[in-house]
Design a protein around this nucleic acid. Sequence first.
DNA 1: TTATAGATAAGATACTGTCTCATCTAATGG
DNA 2: CCATTAGATGAGACAGTATCTTATCTATAA
Lengths: 140, 140
Amino acid sequence: MDTNKMNTKQALNLLKQNGYKYTGKREDMIHFFDKENRYRTAKDLLHHMEPNYKGISVDTIYRNLHLFHSLGILESTDLNGEKHFRMKCDHHHHHHFICKNCGETKEIHHCPMDKIVQELDSYEVEDHKFEIYGFCPACK
Amino acid sequence: MDTNKMNTKQALNLLKQNGYKYTGKREDMIHFFDKENRYRTAKDLLHHMEPNYKGISVDTIYRNLHLFHSLGILESTDLNGEKHFRMKCDHHHHHHFICKNCGETKEIHHCPMDKIVQELDSYEVEDHKFEIYGFCPACK
DNA sequence: TTATAGATAAGATACTGTCTCATCTAATGG
DNA sequence: CCATTAGATGAGACAGTATCTTATCTATAA
Ligand SMILES: [Zn+2]
Ligand SMILES: [Zn+2]
Ligand SMILES: [Zn+2]
Ligand SMILES: [Zn+2]
């Protein structure tokens, strides 16, 4: 399967375990990400929330996105200079194909880092980013 | 060597060949990138230019960065939501280790795409990004 | 029910980047 | 060397994303 990721229940538990409150807004935000394997922006989330929460503050969107990210509920990537978020994949290390049109992701179960760290022994390697971009079957 | 990239002379030729003018500002901008293998921001470039060109417009910085990028003089990447530029590598396809502190790059001559395109035959692959982050010997 | 730590709205603010428009200048040819 | 002009620049307005401050509100637990 391609969906071994954080779910709404785990996410709400994480909030509770860390002393954060369980609000209706947060439940809706988490569900927004839980129901799809897609990268979405703060603006996407704001537009999703506005009909149900008139006057919701943009700051609430950003604060919760960052909170969720810091708790490991969401993962994020920069696409075209804008932060995108998706529910965090919680199984073994992998990378993503990302659709340029809809943000849909497909897992790529190949990481080239093992072969590369040898070349970098005088460097301190902290992180890496490997993403493939294009169009998913539905969007191409 | 690790420096098979566009140089100042080639860059100025590209400008001329495409009907763009050769100004002192542009020469300095290109030289700023030519002299190092580092990713730099628009702000870095602005700070480099200001002492010699009092009152230089930020728009001149951005316009020329985009012009140079469109002519293939510079390549760019997003780091922490901010565009970074470096002199374009003009030899065979490769990737970069990038120092989080100084932007210094080291070429990585391994690309995992060959093995992966098979898994993505129902997708339209357009591009990919593979970058390794950490600290160079001088910064670690 | 009350106390309170945490959550939110509102608006100001910061930062990166783009646009318009008037002015200026490098390059060309006479 | 001068005139012409396409391209370059400066100035400041503007846009988009994201953060900060402060007063108010509320979920939670005692
Ligand atoms: Zn798609
Ligand atoms: Zn990896
Ligand atoms: Zn460094
Ligand atoms: Zn590659």
